[in-house]
Nucleic acid binder design. Sequence first.
RNA 1: CGGGAAGUGGCUCAGUCUGGUAGAGCACAGCGUUCGGGACGCUGGGGUCGGAGGUUCAAAUCCUCUCUUCCCGACCA
Length: 569
Amino acid sequence: MRYSRMLLPTSKETPAEAEVVSHQLLVRGGFIRKLTSGMYTFLPLGYMALQKVTDIVRQEMNRAGAQEILMPMVQPGDLWQESGRWQKYGPELLRFRDRHDRDYCLGPTHEEVVTDIARREMQSYRQLPVNLYQIQTKFRDEIRPRFGLMRCREFVMKDAYSFDVDDAGASQSYEIMREAYHRIFTRCGLDFRAVEADSGAIGGSFSHEFMVLAETGEDTLVICSSCSYAANVEKAAITAYSSDFSQEPPADLVRIETPGMKKVEKVAEFLKVQPRKVIKTLLYYIDKAPVAVLVRGDRVVQPVKLKNLLGATDITPMEEDQIWEQLRLPAGYLGPVGFPLQVVADQEVMDMVNAIAGANEKGHHYNGVNPGRDFQPDITGDLRQIDTSDRCPSCGGDLKFKEGIEVGHIFKLGTGYSDAMHATFQDSDGLEKSFVMGCYGIGVSRVVAAAIEQNHDSKGIIFPLPLAPFQVIILNLGPKDERYCQASERLYTDLRSHGLDVLLDDRDERPGSKFNDADLLGIPYRLTVGKIFEKEGRVELRVRKTGVTEVLTLEETGPYLVDLVQSAL
RNA sequence: CGGGAAGUGGCUCAGUCUGGUAGAGCACAGCGUUCGGGACGCUGGGGUCGGAGGUUCAAAUCCUCUCUUCCCGACCA
């Protein structure tokens, strides 16, 4: 490609609306342009980068035995009624009606459609296993799109769905995908971790997320320093916790005055105890019903765990004024003793002895609260978030917390969808059985953003070679000089004939602009036809990532670069 | 949805408090000089100041409504 002919609008200025590095650089480098909140056009260079990712994904999915298909983006509401998700999915599902007043939605994912295909087209165990995938635009009406390509409403996703005869087969399909994902993200040149994850709105029993480590990540990961354990904090189970209360003999329950002490820290400070002696009582609407949730005063509720523990679909914390207006309870002085509503307690709370908790009366708390004696929760379980005081659930080792960007997610779905939609086949024993399913997603457009978050400097992007829209950029610093042009053209033709992706900067621009644009765009190898060419007839090769330069003759440049690129890939 | 900020040539912004008929830099077009890390000079094109309504002799500026975008939050009582 010749730069002079390419729609590649770069800019010195950082766009005002872009907060994170990947967003800034993608806009400055002319990769993307926003259409409206959470929706972007990929300009030619951006689309090239996107295609680098899709090429890798496609190759590895095909290698893993999956078959590419393409499903409609608009889906009939009926199918979602069948699966039960028309009610469950919530406002992220963009719904609308056609001229006949029939319900439709924009596909945020395609379990329903692909299950419909399976039940129509696959009747026998002999046809299984099958893994179908597509690379396509998804739409999710995100509550808050942000950070450019990181969290869009419309985005490019690879989604795959496996169908097996039984759970063992499904596990095998899952493992094949897990390996494929490892290969994909390794080939993309990303520093990533596969972590245990919650299965969320997709449903299912077992899942892993593939996380690119980057400070701007929206997820927090727990990683064990000693073993291979890694999990999303939403998921990380608390298997062991130390309780140092058990030494104390139980004391009597005493009501005390705590005027203005609404925060755990205040109460603890006032009574000269650690916050961990206090029972924190929080109110949530759980599927619209108010429920009290108890955790130790120094802990944090993990809403995803809470949701799973209760089998709920919607969890919303109650506001202070709601608590008063609807329940006539004084927020800040809530406690489980004599509490009028359902109470859910973190397992750890049950080990507390002589704790402090609100008395459900303004300005008053109880001291000497003993779970089991003074109150009995309706449900107990693991519902708090893991923190730095915890040990690895797998080996007891030290835990580290890191931020990550979710670029892939794989799930074992089981027969939830196939049961609901009556997607069955006839097994070798003659019985009709539901397909055992798995689903596997990759945020293709997000991979581009994640790669940039992880690979950039003050001058711009530093693309990993496999994702670079161009592998080489040739800077012709004498575009009006016939000799420069001939040399540049010769290199351009030569490199392209060897299959390299080359951008020839043939613009009539000053050298400074060309150098800066080349850096901004993050093209891994830069060839300069300039001063050294003038003096010695040779060209300069510079590696974007390392800054290492060397001088080569025109003849040797082609083979040398081809070699470099091929060995790096 | 709650809170905050902002909408002025393609981009980054000033002008708004204190009303008087719109500016800078970048980008773009032409000419000239320049040419290894985002040059300079001259000339030029381009804006119903997000939209609607109102106040006023007069509105980018004041008032009301509205749309859009960005940030924070939507778990710690």
